[in-house]
Simulated scan of single mutants.
Amino acid sequence: MEQMIGSDAPIEKVRVFELAAELFGVLATPMRLRILSALCDKEKSVSQLLQEIQTTQPNLSQHLHLLHRAGVLARRKEGTQVIYRVQSEKVVALCRIVCTQIAKELDAPGAVPDTERMSPRPGD
């Protein structure tokens, strides 16, 4: 894993891993991944997101706030509406790669070699 980062300074490596873990923590709920998926192609208001994602308005707002605070989403006001959009296309690309791979594994469990799997096998 340490070959993924270029710095040789141990303290800098620790910081890289801390920040990566923080980002993964922000993305570690299915609701937040669903929100990112809903915003991949275009910005949407909270009411539009509520129509797409089955949850309560307070729950959605809490997740949107956390994603915004982490820098994953940007927001703007338009009258009384709050409009959200993806701030970090790299985060979306990361999520897309992981979710696409896991979807392939679920569709054809035996077709993906163990060395290429991202999700645990059922029962593991």
Rank of each mutant, 00 (worst) to 15 (best):
Q54V: 15
K13M: 07
A111I: 02
K104S: 10
H68G: 11
L67V: 03
M118V: 08
V14N: 08
K90Y: 08
K104A: 09
R96L: 14
V92T: 12
P113Y: 04
D107A: 10
R34S: 07
A108P: 00
E52A: 12
L27Q: 05
E22K: 15
I35V: 09
L39S: 05
V72M: 07
Y84N: 05
M118S: 15
V26H: 09
H68E: 09
C99I: 07
K44R: 13
V46T: 15
S37F: 08
R15G: 08
E105N: 03
M4E: 08
A20L: 13
S119R: 11
L66I: 07
L94K: 02
R96V: 14
D107I: 07
E18K: 13
S47V: 07
R75N: 07
L64H: 05
R76T: 11
R121G: 00
P58A: 02
A9H: 13
P113A: 13
R96M: 09
E78C: 00
V72F: 04
Q101E: 06
E18N: 07
E116W: 09
Q81E: 14
R69F: 02
L27R: 02
V72N: 11
S88N: 14
T55G: 01
I83W: 00
I11A: 13
C99R: 15
A20E: 14
Q81M: 08
M118N: 12
Q62E: 15
P10G: 10
P10V: 12
K42W: 00
R69K: 09
R75I: 07
T115V: 11
C99K: 10
C95I: 02
L66S: 03
F17W: 15
P109V: 02
L27E: 03
I102M: 15
A103I: 03
A38D: 15
T55Q: 05
C40N: 11
Y84H: 13
V16T: 15
S45E: 03
V92R: 09
A74G: 13
E78G: 01
Q101D: 01
A70N: 08
Q51R: 11
L94I: 12
S7I: 11
T100S: 12
P120E: 10
Q87C: 13
A9K: 15
T80D: 08
R32N: 06
G71Q: 12
R76D: 04
A103G: 02
R75L: 12
A93I: 04
M31L: 10
L33C: 04
D8I: 14
L27P: 05
V82D: 02
G71N: 09
C95P: 00
Q3F: 14
D8N: 14
E12L: 14
E18C: 03
R96S: 09
A108C: 04
V82N: 02
Q62T: 11
L39T: 10
E116V: 13
T115N: 08
P30F: 01
T80G: 04
I53T: 01
A38M: 10
L33T: 05
L66R: 08
R117T: 02
S88T: 06
Q81L: 06
I53R: 00
R32D: 03
E89A: 15
V92G: 05
V86A: 10
Q101C: 06
R121W: 04
R15N: 11
E116L: 15
G71M: 13
A38R: 12
L49N: 05
G25R: 11
A38F: 04
D124M: 03
K104E: 09
I83S: 01
Q54G: 07
T56M: 00
F17T: 11
C99W: 06
A103D: 06
L19C: 05
I83C: 03
P58N: 02
A111V: 03
